[in-house]
Simulated assay, not measured.
Amino acid sequence: MSSLLAPSRMLALATLGGRTMGTTWSTKLAVPSGVDLHPLHDLLQATLDRVVAQMSTWEAGSDLCRFNHAAPGSWQVLPHDFGQVMACALKIAAASGGAFDPTVGALVQAWGFGAGGGTPSIPAPAALAQAQARPRWAQLVLREDPFELLQPGDVQLDLSAIAKGYAVDLLLQALQARGIADALVEVGGELAGRGCKPDGTPWRVLVETGADEHGDLPPRVLALDGLAVATSGDRWHRFEHDGVRYAHTFDPRTGQPVTQAAAAVTVVATTAMDADACATALTVMGVDAGLAFATTHGLAARFVTQSDAGAQERMSARFVDLLAA
């Protein structure tokens, strides 16, 4: 693939963006002054459209929806991107003991979230039991080269907690293939950076807290060069019933929304796909178990909780190290 860059030319900061997956995407990149960015924008949008075509629960013709409706016991051939995401999803599901689970589609719909979910509400016990009775991640079998996934019957995949992160990684790869080594990419709040700005300074991002209105936490800034950051928590999707707050993040092991979910859980990793999925897993685990998991696995993680006393944060040692970098 041809390169847009000519090393001898001065680089300038450019910004591209658009919409995808029900949210927005953007990228800041260092490119030669005056270069035509339209072909690059089209390439990045087409890359995101490919992710949607393969893994969206909202597109009836997507490869994911095809799998969800496949006959029990059938092996379904997956496109490469879909297969890559499933391999990572199953790896993190196993490591987290099912705190992250790509088969939560029926559960999400039962609570009224996601495609076909309608209005968020407490499901009838029978509907919840039916969703919970479906086969889960441990019943999935993934074969590689080419990717093939066994549909054991009635499995409803939902990759919303990992696909945006993967899309971020793909955009960076697409830019790299065009000779653009310095970029900061964001899709729906998940970020990854490589290289630096045209002036030689790092790509720096402010970590979300989920409690910005309180202003009682110090700002946490990360430099992203070969790193990605994702944040999960109850701030973004939730509903209330009889004074009780129900989060959009579910504990697949219980079938219930996460209770007392952290306002924000941030994970930094080498890929946005890993960061995205791990942030969800740690949110499900809760602060104490999640921080212990992060410490054991060497994850850079930050938990922000909220109480009447205000916002509080707890960080893994690896996260603290990155703040000092």
Rank of each mutant, 00 (worst) to 15 (best):
S3A: 12
A6G: 07
A14Q: 12
L16N: 01
G22K: 05
G22C: 05
T23W: 02
A30R: 01
S33N: 00
S33M: 03
V35S: 06
L37P: 00
P39W: 04
D42L: 13
L44Q: 03
L44W: 01
L48W: 05
V52A: 08
Q54N: 01
M55N: 01
S56G: 00
G61R: 03
G73E: 14
W75Y: 07
Q76I: 14
V77E: 15
L78F: 11
H80Y: 01
H80G: 11
A87G: 15
A89G: 09
A89H: 10
L90Y: 10
A93G: 10
A93K: 10
A94N: 14
A95W: 14
G98S: 13
Q109N: 12
A110T: 02
A110G: 08
W111G: 04
G112Y: 09
G114T: 06
G117P: 03
G117I: 06
S121R: 14
P123Y: 08
P123H: 09
P125A: 10
A131F: 05
A133F: 06
R134H: 13
R136Q: 12
W137G: 09
L140F: 04
D145C: 14
E148N: 04
L150K: 05
G153I: 09
L157D: 10
S160A: 15
G165K: 01
A167D: 04
D169R: 03
L170Y: 00
L172G: 10
Q173F: 00
L175M: 03
Q176R: 03
A177L: 01
D182E: 00
V185Y: 05
V185F: 03
G189K: 00
G195Y: 02
G200S: 04
G200I: 00
G200K: 06
V207A: 12
D216G: 12
L217E: 11
P219C: 13
V221Q: 14
A223Q: 14
D225Y: 02
F239C: 07
H241Y: 15
H241E: 15
H248L: 04
T249C: 08
T249E: 09
P252F: 06
R253W: 08
T259R: 15
V265E: 10
T266W: 13
V268E: 08
T270D: 13
T270Y: 01
A277K: 11
A277E: 10
T280D: 14
T280A: 12
T280H: 07
T283F: 12
D288W: 03
A292C: 10
A294E: 15
A300I: 06
A300L: 04
F303N: 06
F303I: 10
V304S: 04
T305N: 11
S316A: 07
R318T: 11
V320D: 10
D321Y: 03
